[in-house]
Every structure is written in structure tokens, then in C-alpha cells.
Write a protein that binds this DNA or RNA. Sequence first.
DNA 1: CTTGAAAGCTCAACAAGCTTGAGTTAATCC
DNA 2: GGATTAACTCAAGCTTGTTGAGCTTTCAAG
Lengths: 391, 391
Amino acid sequence: MIAISDITVGANAGRSRSHNRKLVLGRVRSAGPIGRAEIARVSGLSTQAVSNIIADLLADGLIVEQGRRTAGRGLPAVQYALNPQGGFALGIEIRPDAVFGAVLDLCGRTVSAERHTLAAADRRGVTRAVRDLRRAVLDGTGIPGPRLLGAGIVMPGPFGATGIRGSGSDLAIWEDAAPDIWFSEALGLPVLIENDANAAAIAERISGVARGLSTYAFIYFGSGLGLGVVQDGRLMAGAFGNAGEIGHIPVPAAGRSLNLERAVSRLSVQRALRAAGTEAGGVDDLDRLYHQRHPALLAWLDQATEPLSAAVTIVENLFDPQAVILGGAMPDSVLDHLLAAIRLSDRSVAHRAGRDSPRLMRGASGRMTATLGAAALVLNQAFTPQITVQP
Amino acid sequence: MIAISDITVGANAGRSRSHNRKLVLGRVRSAGPIGRAEIARVSGLSTQAVSNIIADLLADGLIVEQGRRTAGRGLPAVQYALNPQGGFALGIEIRPDAVFGAVLDLCGRTVSAERHTLAAADRRGVTRAVRDLRRAVLDGTGIPGPRLLGAGIVMPGPFGATGIRGSGSDLAIWEDAAPDIWFSEALGLPVLIENDANAAAIAERISGVARGLSTYAFIYFGSGLGLGVVQDGRLMAGAFGNAGEIGHIPVPAAGRSLNLERAVSRLSVQRALRAAGTEAGGVDDLDRLYHQRHPALLAWLDQATEPLSAAVTIVENLFDPQAVILGGAMPDSVLDHLLAAIRLSDRSVAHRAGRDSPRLMRGASGRMTATLGAAALVLNQAFTPQITVQP
DNA sequence: CTTGAAAGCTCAACAAGCTTGAGTTAATCC
DNA sequence: GGATTAACTCAAGCTTGTTGAGCTTTCAAG
């Protein structure tokens, strides 16, 4: 989210090694148990280089041996797999009224999760809450300090003074200080900061339905509506870190032009239900109402179909992703209803003859998506080389 | 445009050098005459490394010394600048009925340009036309072979069998062979292939209004409407090379939902004029009609404003670019009219307090944009390190 | 005018990382 | 059982970037 400066950094021995380490680790992750020779082939390195890096990763405990695999003739390859206990990531989600925390192991599995209410939404209050949360979420897990790879932090965007400020979603307390430096010092860990939609998108890549994908888009129900776009395993940030503000695009709806978020978002459904005399504060409420076939909710779903279909078509045509994922703070029942209702355009670059994978999927991470995504940011960084751009 | 495979390549000494060479050359280009110590500072390399690379670039003739600059105390820095004669790029645009060619020098200035009609739109005919064009465009320039850095080729997208095939825009003759390999062998040069909108976007970065920008979007009038998105100096391709198909997104227009291209494109304006009994084949015709204040053209411009404004808002919010550029096969008069008519949303991430640069600009490259862009692809690649992704 | 600080630059030694090629081990094929 | 194939290791070698000392040139202070 920090505005990416124009600095592209030069390569040297150390940075090359870091790049290659991530490359090899990412291969071990994505290709399951895999031998060194195969890694070398797919990464354009010599087997010797891969051997050295594997030795490094073994010494650091990030991977483990996984027996030999005999395939055809020749010496059977020693296989390697991620060591789940080899590294952990802390994820923290900051909302105006509460903070959520979670810890993921190297394989993306949830180790623990906590929720604290936020006493004071100023900088000191947030810092204390985050520190407390870290202790709470790590206590009893027996995770040694050096095994913590870093912390991901999710705050609602957009960042900086934009035209959509005042939508009530952003915490305006970091104006003078760079929050990443602040949190990094407060936690004593390397820190990554993103908005909720981007974090959710990465969560799907680490432990959700986007596991095999490298280029996809995630439409995220937060309080508003967000979009996280992943290109070649990396988040698309935009020039000022605010890419993906899909809630504010104009879409056709019932013969009018509407901000997407007005028709499709948590706030939108709550408004519609309230007008019908029903309050629905949480995801469970919505789930219940859906199973009761509450007429106001069904009417809302009806009116949401056209604009959401338009949004999906827009995303498909502008980003040409492998898939579009729908998820976030909505019950699965509602998401599934929307997925079934969306009419995919056949005048789309995604409508392709030999296509075998689904164009549209439901996110798998459930309601903790953004918090898990915060931690997933750290894991994703550990698996994805990124030599070119540096703050 | 070639579908980017999932292969991310490892770093070694040679690739690091190539990366750093591009980095240094790009700095020399963007920061004008610049000394070695300063390059070292901004690129995170030692001055010694930069010195070695500069010596290389000098030996290759890509840069030249440019005197010393005395600024404050200390030894004045020896300055370096691009040598325009140090390298050239060939650009070729293939249309269903004609091929265009151009040569750019290292500074992005046009050295020569040609246009040939295309006798046969099959593979052999195209190959012959391209070979002839190459000879024609290089003859008399005195450019020695080794100075040709490569060729960029522009073909209309989308590529592959997508749902918007049959829009009549794509050449369907490369189905079995990879066109980049084909052209590379036919020309004996490294080849880059892109669609027109992407090439046009890069043209603006090399010699147009996007010179200082690293993240921006270009809305391109071809026969349809295209979008080229540049992120950190690199084109956004999408998973299958078809990102940016903005012509096929639904936008609100006069109370209906419309494909953008139906309201805003060359074909659209020609249809509108024909319905009024006027033919407008080329850019000059449109320019004339505009200065005559032709009522059908003005009416078309009127109806184009709302959907185009919507498209710009969508692009701003999804990509968060430094600027949106409008250009392509339209006369400047019409583009300027559209630019003035577009209503920028103030509920956009681009609407920012301390903003000093324009949100919207007209492309500078005129009607040869895509052809120049084809060559610009090659130059851009020479200036932009790209260690991570390889075909 | 002299002296010292500051900044750009070069030289030579060094270190890190990847590659290469020969050699080893273990499986399959004939 | 020998040939072949494939994964892997070892040691030497190569390319590249870094480091630190030393040189040069300019400016500024005394």
C-alpha cells in the first residue's frame, strides 16, 4: 500500500540468492514433494545451485526430506516438501472497533486466532491492542521467535487523501507517520500492509481456491466492495497503492448508472433490510435470513445480479485473469446464490474454446479471510521472488 | 501477448548483469545527463559496479560522455547520456489490408517510416510483406545490422480463441505456430509481439506524454477500443495475454447498458455518420467533419461522453494510475473535444488533495502510434529490467 | 594563499554465488 | 550381468558485485 517509489534495485550476489531461495521454496510449495533436478529444470538454475539452496533451506528448517521417488530409470530423486513448523506468519486486521489476529504455519494452516475489541482508535490504542493481540495469539503455541517470518497488517483502504475519503472506512490516524515503520518497530518484525481485499486475494492463493493460480482477481465483500488483483503471484498496487477500488465504478443497474457499491455490498444489503424493518448485523443473520427466504433479502439479491454481472465482465475483460473469485464478509449461501445468478458474458476474453477451469469461484477462507490474508501476505512474499521493486 | 508461462527464472551472474545494465541504461535515459555516483545511489549498486557497466555501455556505443557537471564541492561528475545512434528498433504493424513499418533511434526519435499494402493476408504473404518492409525502412539509413536491437510487431488482438473472436479484428493465420518464433526467424531478430493498444501505451512512455510516468493507462482508438496498462514500466498482460479489452465492458449510456465499443470507437462513429449519409474513412475525414461542425459527428460525440466518462472512472479506480491517456486513430480535434467533455468523477481514488499532475492527457504520437509503439516495445525492454518473467 | 573537507572516481584484493565437468550411485532395460 | 539413464556430489573456475585505500578536483574556511 505504501506508494511504490520509482526505484528499481540492482542485482548482486546476495539479492540473487534471496531471489533464488524464494523461487526454490515456492516450487517446493507448489509442486508438492519434488526433487532437486526437477526444480533446476523449471527454474533455469543448475542442479548444483539448487542443491546448495536446498541445503540452506534444510538447515533453516523450512523444508524436510520426503523419501525418494523412483520414476523410470536412473537414481531416484530425493523429494522435499515444506516443513509446516519451519516458519509462521502473524496476521493482524485492524477495524475501527476491533482487532483480529491469526497465526499461520508455513503450509498456510491456521494455528491460532483471536479477536480483541479496540478501546481507543488512536495510534497509541491501536499499538497497544496490536501488541496484546500478538501475545495472545502466540501464547501457548510454542513458536520460537526466530520462526516468525513477519507480520501482515490489514487496514481498510483507500490510503492517502483520495476523493473517496469520508466513506467512513479509513482510519485517519497514520497521516504523518508511515504505518509500516511504526508497526515494524512496535512488533519487532518485518511488516507488510495491505487493504482487506488485497489480503483476501492472497489468502486464497496460500490456502484457498487460488492455490494453483498465478493471475486472478478477488471481489471482496468488506463494509464496501473491494477488488484484489494478483498478477504472476504479485499484488497489483497501482501508482499510489489504491488499485482495485471497484466499489466506486459506475455500472448499469435497472436502467440507471450506479456506483457498484450502492447495489452490491454489506452496507447495501443492510440498508435494504433496514428499509424492510429488519436488522442484519452479521454474517450469521444474513445466512439465517437467506434460509428463511426473506423477501427483502431476495429482492436485494435480485437487484444485485445485474450490476455484479457487469462488474465481473469488466474485471474479466480488463485483467484477463485465470478466474474471478467472490468472497469476504457474506455467508456462503448468499455468495453461492450470487455466483449462480451472475450471467457471464460470452463476449469476454475469458470465454474461450478449450477452457477447462471455472471462470468464477467462491472464496474458501470464510469470514476470517482478511485476517488470514494478512498472514498470507508474509507467506506469499516468502514464496515469490521480487527482485525488481523496493521501497 | 504470448501467454506468459508460470516459469519464473532464477538469477545468476549473467542475468544479474543484464538486469543491472538495463537498470543503468534506463536511468541514463530518464535522468538525462547523469553521473555514475548518482546512478549508484538510486539503483542500490556500488559506484564500482556502475562504473564497470558504464564502461560496457560506452564500449557498445549505447551511451556517450557529456562533459562534467560541477555542483557544489567535490570532483565534478562525468555525465553520460544516451547515444541516439547507439541502437535502433524496428517496429512493424500488421493490419488485415496493410503493413506499416518504422525505425526509432535509441532516443525514440523516428528515423524512417513506410507503408505497404498487403497482397495476401496469409502467412506467406505477411512474411514476405514484413521482409520487404524491413528492407524498405532500413534502406538508406546506414544502420549497421548489429545496431538493430530487435523488432516489435503489432497485430490486432485478442489472441487465442476467445469469445470476442469474429469481431473481424484478428488475423487467424497463426493458429498452429507461435508467431513470435516465426517472425524472429523470418527477420533474424529478437521479436516482441503485442496488440495495438499495448504498443501505443509504450510509445507514449518512450517518446510521448508518459515519459516520466511508470504507471498509467492508455485508452486507444483502433478499429475498436483498446486499453494498454503499464505498471512500473511493464505492460500488464493478463493470464492469457488479453488484458485490456475495454471495448467489451458494459457501461451505462442513456439509461441502458451498452458495450463501450458500441458507443465509443472508430466503427461506432463511422456507423453514426453513415446513418446520416456521410462516409468518413480516415482520420483526416473526421478532422474535416469536426471543423465543419457536422451535426452527426457532434451528436456522436455527445452520446460518447457518458460511456467514455464511465470508462475513465472505471480505469482510474481499478488501476490507480498516475494518468489516463487518450489516443490512437482519431484526429486531435476529436480527442481534445472528448477530453474536455469527459466528466471526471470526484469519487475516485485519482481525486486526491495534493495532486499536481493531470489525470487525463491526450496521446502525443499521432496516427502512427501503434507502429511507433511496436518499435518502442523494443526500446522499453532495453531500459526496463525484467528478471522475473521469461517465456 | 593555504589547508581541509567533500565528492567522484579508480585500483586491487576479496567474497559470494552460479556453472561446469568429471565422477559416483542407484534404478531400469535388454 | 552389462549398458543406459538419471540424480546427485565434488572441486575447480568464472562472472559479478563489494570493499577499502588512495587519487583527483572542487569549494570553503581560516
